[in-house]
Amino acid sequence: MKKTLIPLALGLLTGMASTIATANTGTINFVGKIDSSTCPIEVVNPGSGAIGNEVSMGSISPSRFTAVGQEYPGNDFILRVPADAGCNLDPANPNTGTVTFTGTADTSGDYYATKNFTGAATGVAIVIKDNTGFAVKNGTASNTYPLSATVASDMKFDAYYRSTAATVTAGPADADVAFLVTIN
Rank of each mutant, 00 (worst) to 15 (best):
I128C: 02
V151L: 03
S153W: 08
D84M: 08
N116A: 15
E54H: 07
G109T: 11
T144A: 12
L13S: 13
I78F: 07
P94L: 12
N24C: 02
G52L: 04
D90V: 14
G11I: 12
P46M: 06
S108P: 10
T114N: 09
V43Y: 03
P91V: 14
A21Q: 04
I128N: 02
A141S: 15
G97E: 06
I28T: 15
A125F: 08
G52F: 03
F117S: 13
C39T: 06
P94R: 10
N29L: 15
L89K: 13
V43F: 08
V81F: 03
A149S: 15
P62F: 02
C87K: 08
N24L: 10
G97A: 15
F101Y: 14
G49T: 00
D35W: 03
I128E: 01
A9R: 02
A121M: 06
M16H: 01
G47R: 04
L12A: 15
L10F: 10
P73I: 05
Y111N: 15
S153I: 05
G97K: 06
A152C: 03
P82L: 05
S56R: 11
D106H: 07
A67R: 14
N131M: 04
G86K: 08
T118L: 12
F30A: 15
T27A: 13
A125Q: 10
N116R: 14
T122R: 12
M16Q: 09
G74D: 05
N45G: 11
P94K: 10
T107S: 15
T38L: 07
T150D: 09
I20D: 00
N116G: 12
V127I: 06
N116V: 14
M16D: 03
G52T: 04
I126K: 07
G26Y: 11
K33G: 05
G32C: 10
A83P: 03
L12T: 12
T98V: 11
D35P: 02
T98E: 10
A9D: 01
N24W: 03
V127G: 01
S148I: 06
V136E: 09
T104C: 00
I78W: 10
L10V: 12
G86I: 06
L79N: 03
G86E: 09
G133D: 13
T118E: 13
